[in-house]
Computed example of a mutant assay.
Amino acid sequence: MARDSYQEKLETLQSDVLYMSEVVTDRLRMALEGMAQKDDDTAWEVIDGDDEVNQLYLDLEDDCIDLLALQQPVAGDLRLIASSFKIITDLERIGDLAANLAEYTLDAERDMFPEVDIQAIGDTTIEMVENAMDAYAESDVDACYEIAGRDDDLDDRCRRASETVMRDLIETEIDDATADDEVEPLMQEVSRMLLTVRDLERIGDHAVNISARTVYMVENDDELIY
Rank of each mutant, 00 (worst) to 15 (best):
M30G: 02
D111V: 13
D96G: 05
D40I: 13
S5P: 11
Q119C: 14
T124R: 05
D199S: 08
D26Q: 09
M187V: 14
L195D: 14
L169I: 06
D134Y: 12
V24A: 01
M128S: 05
V183L: 10
G204V: 02
Y136Q: 04
T172H: 11
V46E: 03
L67A: 00
E109N: 12
L91Q: 06
G34S: 10
S211V: 09
A2D: 15
E8T: 15
S5A: 15
L67P: 00
L68T: 06
I203G: 00
T105R: 05
K38V: 05
T178L: 13
D96H: 04
Q119G: 12
D156I: 08
N209T: 01
D134P: 07
D90G: 08
V53A: 01
D39T: 02
T42K: 10
T125Q: 07
M35E: 02
T42Y: 08
S21C: 07
N100R: 06
D152N: 06
G34T: 05
E22D: 14
L195M: 15
T125N: 03
L101K: 07
L70V: 13
Q188W: 15
G76K: 09
S83C: 09
K86S: 11
P73I: 12
G76A: 14
A36C: 10
A132D: 01
D66Y: 09
T172Q: 11
D40L: 12
Y136T: 07
D153F: 05
E182K: 13
D59V: 13
M112D: 11
Y104W: 05
Q119F: 11
R150K: 13
T164F: 06
A148F: 08
Q55H: 13
D176W: 11
L58Q: 14
D155P: 08
L97R: 06
G34W: 03
C64T: 09
D111W: 04
D39N: 06
E130D: 15
R110K: 10
Q71H: 15
F85N: 11
T25R: 00
D77R: 03
E163R: 10
N54R: 04
D153A: 08
I118F: 07
T214A: 07
E146L: 11
D50Y: 04
I94H: 01
D222A: 14
D168W: 10
S5G: 15
A143P: 01
A161P: 00
M133S: 01
A132K: 02
Y104V: 05
V165F: 03
W44D: 12
E182H: 14
N220D: 14
E103I: 04
D26F: 13
Y6V: 08
R202F: 04
E115H: 07
T164N: 06
L91I: 02
A75Q: 07
E33L: 06
K9Q: 12
E173P: 09
L60P: 08
Y145H: 10
E138H: 12
N209M: 05
G122V: 00
A120L: 09
L18Q: 03
D181S: 13
D176R: 14
V208M: 01
E8S: 15
A102E: 00
N220C: 06
L68H: 05
M30T: 02
E171L: 11
I210V: 10
L67M: 07
A179I: 12
I126K: 06
